[in-house]
Design a protein around this nucleic acid. Structure first.
Length: 276
DNA sequence: AAGAATGGTCCGCTTACATCA
DNA sequence: ATTGATGTAAGCGGACCATTC
């Protein structure tokens, strides 16, 4: 597993303390969202975990849509799609009111227009056709955000309202981010497990070395140059190898090499084993 | 120039509905 | 036929930015 920052520019930052544990915070009470979906990730060790998707393509020139035969779902809104904002959507709805009824034609049997009886009986559910979804996906691959012109063109192409195209892109971005967050979360959990194991092992080494020091004080009086011991592989070597550190320093330095702040977490563990 | 008003867009959260096992 | 799980279109509110006055 790894992060391809060229593909997904998710910002990821992690700080690790001494009692690592990754916790997935479920949705709020009263929320009907799926409990298995992580809403946030909390780390109990003084963490700094930021997962965010950065949309890198704000400027979307050269927008090309391949022609496709899309099932006609709506008659285009007679008002055009002059506004996309929530405020204007609200206004749009208010303005429509009675004049809305004649604008809708349900052509697809599996699609219900949200314009035909807007209001009292609750919203209806639109299901995009496969052709529409495919074209939207294709556009999304090119650029995850749309400028107004692109939105208009795509909406025209799909026989949807620009607002629907906008909503689709918003939801699509949210889905992408959620998936990436889940991937990142799994990765962090694995890193956490690795570090926990590493920490446990090093603590054990410290204890063993301390015991050794008590049991064999003479052993420790030997010059370091003549006797070196790798704290990780527990092999005693000659003077040719890297110098051994004392038990305390070994633990300290090794751990500090794990927790040394790096600019970005995702480059911090090319080799998770901090020893040797 | 500074600041309020407005409009457009995005995001996070949520709801409601469609679909499927 | 019913039901619970899941996917997703859409609503809502807030934040941010640009433009206008």
């Amino acid at each position: 597993m790894g992060f391809d920052r060229n593909v997904c520019e998710t910002g990821l930052k992690l700080g690790l303390g001494f009692s690592p544990a990754v916790e997935i915070i479920p949705a709020k009470a009263g929320n009907h969202s799926h409990p298995c979906r992580p809403k946030a990730v909390a780390l109990s060790f003084e963490p700094s975990l930021t997962l965010g998707l950065v949309s890198g393509d704000k400027v979307n020139d050269g927008f090309v849509i391949k022609p496709s035969s899309c099932e006609i779902l709506y008659r285009q809104d007679s008002t055009g799609a002059s506004s996309f904002s929530n405020a204007s959507v609200k206004r749009e709805r208010e303005q429509r009111g009675s004049e809305e009824t004649e604008t809708t034609a349900r052509v697809s049997s599996r699609v219900i227009s949200d314009e035909d009886d807007d209001g009292s009986n609750g919203r209806k559910k639109l299901r995009l056709t496969k052709a529409q979804s495919a074209l939207l996906e294709e556009s999304f691959k090119l650029h995850s955000t749309l400028n107004p012109k692109q939105k208009q063109e795509l909406a025209k192409e799909l026989n949807l309202r620009p607002r629907q195209v906008e909503v689709w892109f918003q939801n699509r971005r949210a889905r992408t981010k959620l998936k990436q967050t889940e991937v990142d979360c799994e990765y962090l959990k694995k890193c956490c497990e690795t570090l926990t194991d590493e920490n446990r092992r090093l603590q054990k080494e410290v204890q063993e070395l301390k015991a050794l020091k008590v049991a064999q004080p003479l052993y420790m009086q030997l010059p370091a140059a003549t006797l070196t011991m790798c704290p990780s592989c527990e092999r005693v070597g000659g003077s040719g190898g890297p110098p051994a550190t004392s038990a305390d320093n070994s633990s300290k330095e090794t751990f500090s090499s794990i927790t040394t702040p790096k600019p970005h977490f995702y480059n911090s563990f090319p080799n998770p084993s901090a020893a040797c």
